[in-house]
Structures are given as C-alpha cells and as structure tokens.
Simulated scan of single mutants.
Amino acid sequence: MPRPSRRVDVRATAARIFREHGYLAATMDQIADEVGLNKGTLYHYYPSKSAILYELLSEQVDATLDMLARVPLTGSSTERMRFFVREQVAHVATSHDELVVFFQEVPWMDQRLSAEDARSIRQRIYRYEEFVKSLLAEGVRTDEFRPLAPSTTLYSIIGILAYVPNWYRRPEDGTDDLLVEEVTDFVMGGICAAPPEKPATGARRNSRK
C-alpha cells in the first residue's frame, strides 16, 4: 500500500512554527525536523517556505468566501449580516495557528509571496471586503445600521475577528456556542442603529464556567 501523505502534518506544523517564531525566522530545516522528515522529502510536498504560506493564506480566504456564498439572498440586512458575522466568529473560534498566521502575515504578503500569488490572495480578499461593505451600506440605507462609513465598520469587525484566535481556546468537546453568540452579539450591537433582533433559536445551550 502507498504511504500516506504527510502534507497535512507539514502544513499544520509550519503554521505553528510561523506563529511561534514568525515567518521570516522559520526555516524549512526547522519544519522538516519538527515533522520528522528529511529535507528532500519536505521539498517533495512544498517547493519553498513561501508555497506553504500561500496555501495557508489561501485556505483561510477560501473558507471565508465559502461563508459568503452561504449568506441568504433574502431577509433584512440585520438578519443577513448577523448570519455572516456568526459564521465568521464560529470559524475563528475553531482555528488557531492558521488564523493567527493569516492575520499576522497578510499585511506582508507582497514581501513574502510572488507577485502572482500575492495578487491572487488580494483579489479574493477584495471580494470579501466589497461584499461586506455593500451589505453594510444597504443596512445604512434602510436605517438598520448606524450611519458609519462601511470601511470603518468593516475593519473594526476584522480587528475583532483577528484577535479571537490569540486568546480563545475552544473546549475539547467542541466549539463554545456561548462564546460565538456573545461575540456575534457584541459585533452586531456596534453595527445596528437599534438593539439588534435576536434570532428565535431557543435557549442557549452552554454556560460559561
């Protein structure tokens, strides 16, 4: 039988090393040693350190675009934004190293990646930003959202999402639903012109210990 690929192990280990030491200080030798591969085998999976970084960044951008595609096409701006915010909070609460690396390295991607790879990431981020700003502008027009510049609100939301993986550690039995609801409520409370409507989903299941 063929030996299983170690690609997933390599990527996860690289994400941890990039988070702990920073991308520039990390080396392929260090990654190979941590995974338990010789350097030649490591290069079989990834031709360079930047190739690993590109894949890590791509995965996070694509996961966000998948959430964007699930946003309902109908409903109020508040309902649609709450759905999207909750999806994003749930995502950042279940990932750690990969998301820390994403927010840590995206500002430097022009220095870290090839021009083509950086452009690919930037184009996908642009799709995300334009969608959110459009939804925010729509909510302002319908008087559901506070009359703030969409860019101001967008980057404030991103700032909140970016910091969650730095401090939150999910319980071993899965995602903390209460945390997801609390952060979503906090974000929506800052967006909405009036106290945001709460979805009729029944009592919250988890309690904070």
Results as ranks from 00 to 15, higher is better:
21 H>G: 08
22 G>N: 07
22 G>C: 09
23 Y>K: 11
24 L>Q: 13
25 A>Y: 14
26 A>I: 11
26 A>G: 07
27 T>I: 01
28 M>Q: 10
30 Q>R: 14
30 Q>V: 08
32 A>E: 05
32 A>I: 13
34 E>Q: 14
34 E>L: 04
36 G>W: 09
37 L>C: 09
38 N>T: 05
39 K>R: 10
40 G>N: 07
40 G>Q: 09
40 G>I: 13
40 G>W: 10
41 T>S: 12
41 T>N: 11
42 L>A: 06
43 Y>C: 03
44 H>E: 02
45 Y>C: 08
45 Y>H: 10
45 Y>F: 13
46 Y>I: 03
46 Y>E: 01
48 S>I: 06
48 S>N: 00
48 S>Y: 04
48 S>G: 08
53 L>C: 12
55 E>S: 11
55 E>G: 13
56 L>R: 03
57 L>N: 05
58 S>F: 15
59 E>Y: 08
59 E>A: 11
60 Q>D: 08
64 T>K: 11
70 R>T: 05
71 V>A: 15
76 S>A: 04
77 S>K: 09
77 S>C: 07
77 S>Y: 05
78 T>D: 00
79 E>A: 10
79 E>V: 08
79 E>Y: 09
81 M>Y: 13
81 M>L: 14
83 F>Q: 06
85 V>W: 06
86 R>I: 00
86 R>C: 06
87 E>D: 14
90 A>E: 07
90 A>D: 04
91 H>L: 14
94 T>V: 11
95 S>F: 14
96 H>P: 01
97 D>F: 11
97 D>M: 05
97 D>C: 09
97 D>A: 11
97 D>K: 02
99 L>S: 04
101 V>W: 02
102 F>M: 05
103 F>W: 05
104 Q>V: 00
105 E>G: 00
105 E>M: 01
109 M>Y: 09
110 D>N: 10
110 D>P: 10
115 A>K: 14
116 E>C: 02
117 D>L: 01
119 R>T: 14
119 R>N: 14
120 S>Q: 05
121 I>K: 00
122 R>P: 00
123 Q>F: 13
123 Q>L: 15
126 Y>N: 15
129 E>F: 04
129 E>P: 04
130 E>N: 09
131 F>H: 09
131 F>L: 07
133 K>V: 03
134 S>Q: 10
134 S>P: 00
135 L>S: 05
136 L>F: 06
137 A>R: 00
139 G>I: 00
139 G>K: 05
140 V>T: 06
140 V>G: 03
141 R>D: 06
141 R>I: 04
144 E>W: 00
145 F>D: 03
145 F>Q: 01
145 F>S: 05
145 F>V: 00
